[in-house]
Amino acid sequence: MWALSDESLLAGMASGDAQAAAALVRRYQARVFGLARAIVREPGLAEEVAQEAFVRAWRHAAAYDSRRGAVSTWLLAITRNLAIDALRLRREEPVDPQVLLTRLLAVEPADEAAQAAQGEEFVRQALRGLPLEQARAIALAVFYGMSGRKIAEIEGIPLGTAKTRLRRGMARLRDQLEVSDG
């Protein structure tokens, strides 16, 4: 089963193959749950979000288009959106962008996933290379779904500055990642 591609497992899952569904869940549950945890923090809510992400993936499997990106990318995008929605519904404590950033950047790639984690390490490296305020703005927008306006409020900066940090940070990341792609 582990030799099957993500696409085959997703197709199997969509057609009602419980074994394929189980294999896909097993393959990605740590990444999906980990992402949900990074966003919503509370483990019970993170589990709810992660479960829902797999249910949505099953439900929308027919809409998955491999030309647009990997199954894992798609699954994580679903998870991210669900987690941000959950976060918006129960916004209680103020977030600390520094804690989030530390959590994102401190990871050492696990042995078993070393191959896959290499790409992620490039991204971490690129994020580490940004001016701290740009990295914080990007982390707040990507992981908490915060608009420029909200970031300006949290960081105590003018709206234009928040938008500039996002735009410059993204442009710089893109330059760095394109270099490492080549």
């Binding site: 740590a30 980990g34 966003i39 994580l76 990642l177």
Partner: peptide, 16 residues
């Protein structure tokens, strides 16, 4: 694509 790449760096964690 950049947002997708950034989303992928959340540390993996085993669920219950």
């Amino acid at each position: 694509r950049m947002v997708d790449a950034l989303t992928s760096i959340a540390p993996a964690e085993e669920p219950p």
